[in-house]
Every structure is written in C-alpha cells, then in structure tokens.
Write a protein that binds this DNA or RNA. Sequence first.
DNA 1: CAGTGGTCTAGACCACATT
DNA 2: ATGTGGTCTAGACCACTGG
Lengths: 234, 234
Amino acid sequence: MSNSKFKYEEIIESIKHKISTNVYKDNDPLPSETALCAEYGASRITVRKAISVLLSEGHLYSIQGKGNYIKNVKKNKFSMRYSCKTIFNNGYDEAKLISSSLVTPDVYMVYNLNIAPNERVVALKWLIYEDGLPIAYDEKYLPYFAGINISEKSLKYKDFSDLVKNKISVYEMYQDLRIKGVNADADVAEKLRIPVGSILMLVELNVYDQSGLPFGWGKLYILPDKTRFFARTE
Amino acid sequence: MSNSKFKYEEIIESIKHKISTNVYKDNDPLPSETALCAEYGASRITVRKAISVLLSEGHLYSIQGKGNYIKNVKKNKFSMRYSCKTIFNNGYDEAKLISSSLVTPDVYMVYNLNIAPNERVVALKWLIYEDGLPIAYDEKYLPYFAGINISEKSLKYKDFSDLVKNKISVYEMYQDLRIKGVNADADVAEKLRIPVGSILMLVELNVYDQSGLPFGWGKLYILPDKTRFFARTE
DNA sequence: CAGTGGTCTAGACCACATT
DNA sequence: ATGTGGTCTAGACCACTGG
C-alpha cells in the first residue's frame, strides 16, 4: 500500500487519502498535533514536518491556538512563465529599439503609473523581428524617477524585471500581467505592416514595488500566430 | 534594522539580503548548516527551518551530501486562476448544453486524448450566454472510459476538474492550459452569431492523470471583449 | 574517510483561543 | 485553566558526496 520511505511521508499520504475519500471534509479540523503523534506513533516534530508540507501545498490551513483545518484543493490554480525570451513561439532574431524618449504622460500613463500629469515618463519602444519581418511591437513606460538612462546605447531588449533590477530589489517587486485579444489600431498596424483591424495579442504588464507604487507599465502586441500562452496546474 | 520577530526569520532576512547584495551569487554554496548555526547562534533545527522556507520560495536548492546552493530568483513565474466561474469578465447568465453524444474521434481528438481511432469519445458542447446573447462556445471531449454519463440530465456547465472528480482524485490530476487568438470558423461563427473570421480567444485545456494519461480535452471560444486573463508573480 | 544534508527523537516555553 | 499551534533547544543516526 504505502510507497513512502519516511514516516512523515506516510503521514502526508494518509492525510491526503482521508481528504480524497472524504473522511476529512472541507474546513474539518484535523486532529490535534498531539493526537496525530499518538495516531502515527511519531514525535511532534515529525507530525509538524508532515503538516508543514500539507500547508505549503495548500491542503491545510492553520489557526494558532485553534487547530489545523482541511482546505479543499481547488484545481484551478495555474502557473505560467512569462519572459521576452519565451513568449515567442520560435524566439526572435532581433529586437530594434525604435525610440527612447522622455514624454508627457497621456491619461493611460497617468492611470497605470499613478503619476501626476506634470511628471515625465520614460518611453521605450521596440520592434521585434523574425526572418526580417516584424512580429511584435513593445512599448514600455517608466516613471522618470525609476532612474533609467534613456541615452544608454546598450538598451537591449529585456524584461521589465531586468530593466529595473538595479533600482529595485527583486524581493520588493511584483508584476501583474493581462492578456487580451485586440484589433490593431493605425499606429500599431503600420509598425507591424498589417491591415488596420487585424487581430493581435496584447500582453500588458504592470510592475510594482512592495508598497504598491507602480514602477513600470508595458504593452506588447504580438501577431497571434507567433505566440502562445501556456500554463499548468501546480 | 531587523523587523523580524523570530530567529529563523532573521536568518531568512539575512540570507536574502546577502543574495540581493551579491554577497551570495547564483549557484554559490550556502555555508553549511553547522556553519550557519555558529554564525547565527541558532540550533540546526532553527537554521533548517529558515532554509526550508528559502527552499520552498525557490531561493535555494539542495544537493544531499553536498550542500545548499543559491538559486537566483527569476521573476518570471506568474500564477493565474482559471475556472468557468471566473473566466468571464461579467460572469454569465446561463449555459446551455447544446449536445452530448458519443462520437468517432477526428485526428485532433486522437491526438489530444491519445486514444485509438476505433475508440469512442464523449463530446459535450455548451453555449454560454450573457444578456440573452451567446458570448462563448465550449467543447469538451473525454475518452469513453472516463465514465461520464452523457444521458445525465444534470450536466451542468462546470470545470473539467469537477466533471471528472468522481473518476479521478484531484491529487492525481494535472491540467495544461493554452491561450491563443484565433479567427472564427464557420461552425463557431454561426453558433456565436458573429461573422466568419472574427477574432476569438481560444482557451484549450488538456487534463491528465498522474501517469500522463489524457482524461479530457476542451476548447473554449470566447468573444475577446468578454474575457481577460490575469496573472500575478508569486 | 570526513563532511554534508535528511530524518527523527524528547522536552521546553511561548502566544493565542476557548471555556 | 486548558488545549492548541509556533518556536527553539541538544543530540542522535542515516544516506549521500567527494577526495
């Protein structure tokens, strides 16, 4: 029956089995740690090791002073990787920086970067090519205080996290990503040499520091057959 | 300096600080656990508690018999929730099962369900409505052995994981999700009452058991302005 | 072989929640 | 006051790695 090598693995297996056979139901209290020690003939540390795994996997939740409780696993949490290296089906041959400038924000920048209308915004625009043809158009906006040097000639195409990593620790950064299907407007259509109204995938990215202050906003338009998004349950 | 309440939190904070200030670089070995005990004046269990947190957060990796090593956090891992309850911007009013039948598989079903051409496939098709108008079209395919009762009148619109949850434990299931932009073909266009060639968001879902055996394949076509995908770094 | 991480123990004290 | 989970300790043995 049991394939587990260690005592704590057997406890995990047993508890998972009791959850999946409805012996333990959602929000039921797990037996107390001392009770589990007796049930499995293990020390409290071993029991807690098992519980810590189940906690980290999301099968339990704890309330100090009360107990550990069953949390029904919803199998709807997916994880995906997103980076400029992986977003294109076949990668890309080159990325050209077509402009880097200090601009007056429009309403979208004021909204997404949470800045005052009189502040300035660093705007970076790239075209990404495959086989000599543009396959994607990338706009990135950063508040001027984020400290990017726009005269920098070495502005290689890179992810937001790399762009700002010297200004903000990766531990103090989080990102929101939104995927939509949109129709190309005149500007983007011309840049990508496609008819106005063609469908494009739009990936918007907002970068924040730990306190929630926006550090960047990006829009990436991609020809729909040049990209795909892939996510998997954890 | 330190806001941490507990000794193990201070150790975590200290190690994270050394990573972000490049004292510890990618793939550097962390000092041995006994060395860390001495450095922080803590027992091995407390040191291991800190290390276990850093391991679970992906800042370290371990090789038994060798040591613990620094893993540079790539901030490109996003997590998203996907379920038929949350995928629509404004939810949906109703979902009509428009057909449930046993069909002979086409090449895509043979491929995605990894079945033989002479096996049978359960096909379920739904239309999802908002304000009386169709906003999405859902096709789900399951190998016949998956044991869904197609005559079941109570085939409510639900996620794959709910559809098969009595046949397969949630602990033995994983799902792959792919998002694409596509042009509506004649069949889908007619069902959704839109012009052929209109852009649609296509969400494909493959469900597997733990051994990798396919348990289901689904295609969900959604009007692009009725949905959005949202992911956040962990 | 020595050094490393992985598991496991008994026992202690604290913070929190309920009665 | 009692029971709960949360932290911490010292000490032991095992499995794995490398020289």
